[in-house]
C-alpha cells in the first residue's frame, strides 16, 4: 500500500491541473516499512520533454540525482514518481512500462479537460511483463 495524505493527493492533483494539457511529473520521498510505503514529501519537477509534453514526460538524470540527495539528506527514500495522463486513463502505457523499473511506485492521475480525476499507483513486476496496481491509502482518492 502507498499511503498518501489528503494534502499530498491534492498537491499532485493541483500540479496535474496546472500543467494541463501537458503532462506533469514529480518525485515522492518517504519511508517503507513492512511493505507499506508512506509518502512524506513531494518534489515537483519540470517536464523536460519539450517535443511532445502532451503525452510524454522526462526527468533527466541530473534531477534524479538531485532528488536522491535531497531524500538522503532528510533520512528518506526516493520511493516513486508521479505523472499525469491528460485526457487519458490513469493506466500505464506500454511506453511507461518500457521506461520503468520495479520497486518504484508510479502514481498516475488522469486529467480530463483540465480537471484532475482518477488517481492510481502501479508497480512494475520483476519480469517487466506488466504493472500491478498498488492500493493508495487515502479516503480522498476513493471518491475521485
Amino acid at each position: 500500500m502507498l499511503k498518501l495524505s489528503e494534502e499530498l493527493v491534492e498537491r499532485i492533483r493541483a500540479h496535474a491541473a496546472q500543467s494541463y494539457p501537458y503532462e506533469c511529473c514529480g518525485a515522492m520521498l518517504g519511508t517503507e516499512s513492512s511493505g507499506a510505503r508512506l509518502v512524506k514529501e513531494l518534489v515537483m519537477l519540470d517536464n523536460q520533454r519539450e517535443d511532445s509534453p502532451r503525452n510524454r514526460f522526462l526527468v533527466d538524470p541530473a534531477d534524479v540525482l538531485r532528488v536522491e540527495r535531497a531524500a538522503r539528506a532528510q533520512g528518506l527514500d526516493l520511493i516513486g514518481w508521479y505523472h499525469s495522463h491528460p485526457d487519458a486513463p490513469p493506466r500505464p502505457s506500454d511506453f511507461d512500462r518500457e521506461h520503468a523499473w520495479p520497486w518504484y511506485s508510479y502514481v498516475i492521475v488522469s486529467v480530463e479537460a483540465g480537471v484532475p480525476r482518477r488517481m492510481a499507483s502501479w508497480r512494475l513486476l520483476d519480469d517487466r511483463s506488466r504493472f500491478d496496481g498498488e492500493e493508495i491509502g487515502s479516503d480522498l482518492t476513493a471518491a475521485c
Partner: peptide
Amino acid sequence: IVPSIAGGRSR
C-alpha cells in the same frame, strides 16, 4: 547507474 524517469500516455 542512474535512471532518467520517462513515460506518458498512449498516443
